[in-house]
Computed example of a mutant assay.
Amino acid sequence: MQTPNLPAIRALRPAWNKGRIVGQKLPLKPKHVWAIRVRLELAENHRDLALFNLAIDSKLRGCDLVRMKVADVMASGQIKARASVLQSKTQKPVRFEISEGTRASVAKWMEDPLTVGSEFLWPGRFHERLHISTRQYARIVRDWVGSIGLEVTAYGTHSMRRTKVTQIYKKTGNLRAVQLLLGHTKMDSTVRRLGRMCSDWRVSGGHRQN
């Protein structure tokens, strides 16, 4: 009697997201931003302090943040008060203000020997890498949130992108302003980015319930 062909039995692998928190990453609260800044200042970690501050101010995606060039933020030897960066996803520019504290931290970072002669704002440490990678940036973000006791799986690079706009939306309820700040082409993208805070916008058909 011929034995029927049976599918091979594969060893069960653990799910890729086992033990991880998946989905929308949380924005940082003001107290978290303050705590991370204090730790970086005390450690005199000039690169990470400038990177953290600019990530919050710019609200850029990680892929655009790591590719920022010195010319994006500096002109005539001074750090600009406003900057414009072309987004790789939409191929459209997004403008943002650079706060006084961020300008000071970026200026301090620009004094570091690693930045001398570099076209990019966050140069890589190896000759074959012109700037830090998005994966390296993600590791840096995990270090930041872990240093103040937060659950690292609940936060990510998009936490940096969401932090400032979340506070702006809480204060103003102005979705259009948030859309412009994030550089979104569609309002639905902005609603998804803000998550539960905008559930009332969907229910009301595009008008915020107060």
Results as ranks from 00 to 15, higher is better:
164 K>Y: 02
84 S>K: 12
64 D>H: 05
85 V>F: 00
77 G>S: 08
88 S>G: 12
125 R>V: 11
20 R>K: 15
9 I>F: 13
89 K>M: 11
130 L>S: 15
12 L>H: 08
208 R>A: 14
55 A>P: 01
83 A>H: 04
137 Y>A: 06
104 A>P: 03
69 K>R: 15
37 R>L: 00
171 K>F: 02
67 R>N: 14
36 I>N: 03
26 L>C: 06
192 R>F: 09
205 G>R: 11
173 G>A: 02
59 K>G: 05
198 C>A: 15
203 V>W: 08
142 R>T: 05
131 H>V: 04
78 Q>M: 13
210 N>H: 11
43 A>C: 03
41 E>H: 03
200 D>N: 14
172 T>D: 09
36 I>K: 03
145 V>K: 02
37 R>Y: 00
92 K>D: 11
152 V>F: 06
14 P>R: 11
179 Q>E: 01
124 G>P: 04
129 R>M: 13
43 A>G: 01
197 M>L: 15
207 H>N: 11
178 V>T: 06
47 R>F: 02
62 G>L: 09
10 R>G: 07
193 R>Y: 14
126 F>A: 13
123 P>W: 02
40 L>P: 01
203 V>T: 11
129 R>V: 11
82 R>N: 11
148 I>D: 04
137 Y>I: 00
179 Q>F: 08
157 T>V: 13
105 S>L: 04
51 L>D: 04
155 Y>Q: 06
102 T>N: 01
172 T>E: 11
132 I>M: 10
21 I>Y: 05
190 T>H: 05
75 A>L: 14
48 D>K: 00
51 L>W: 02
204 S>A: 15
195 G>C: 12
196 R>A: 14
33 V>H: 06
18 K>S: 09
204 S>H: 13
117 G>Y: 10
60 L>S: 00
55 A>M: 10
70 V>M: 05
195 G>N: 11
201 W>C: 01
22 V>I: 12
155 Y>L: 06
137 Y>M: 14
125 R>E: 06
146 G>Y: 06
98 I>T: 06
57 D>K: 07
127 H>A: 15
76 S>R: 14
16 W>H: 09
204 S>C: 12
64 D>V: 04
69 K>A: 09
61 R>Y: 07
71 A>P: 00
1 M>W: 09
203 V>Q: 13
183 G>L: 02
166 T>F: 02
187 M>D: 05
198 C>W: 03
7 P>G: 08
70 V>K: 07
84 S>F: 01
11 A>V: 05
94 V>N: 02
31 K>R: 07
156 G>I: 01
171 K>S: 13
148 I>K: 07
46 H>G: 05
6 L>D: 08
58 S>H: 04
86 L>N: 08
40 L>K: 04
9 I>N: 10
149 G>Y: 08
187 M>Y: 06
10 R>Y: 10
129 R>Y: 15
185 T>H: 07
45 N>Q: 05
28 L>K: 01
48 D>I: 01
81 A>T: 13
3 T>C: 09
188 D>E: 13
117 G>S: 12
136 Q>R: 13
100 E>W: 04
126 F>N: 08
88 S>L: 11
92 K>H: 12
61 R>A: 07
42 L>S: 05
107 A>W: 00
163 T>H: 04
25 K>R: 11
113 P>V: 01
142 R>G: 07
126 F>C: 12
104 A>K: 11
118 S>T: 06
116 V>A: 13
199 S>D: 15
177 A>M: 14
147 S>F: 05
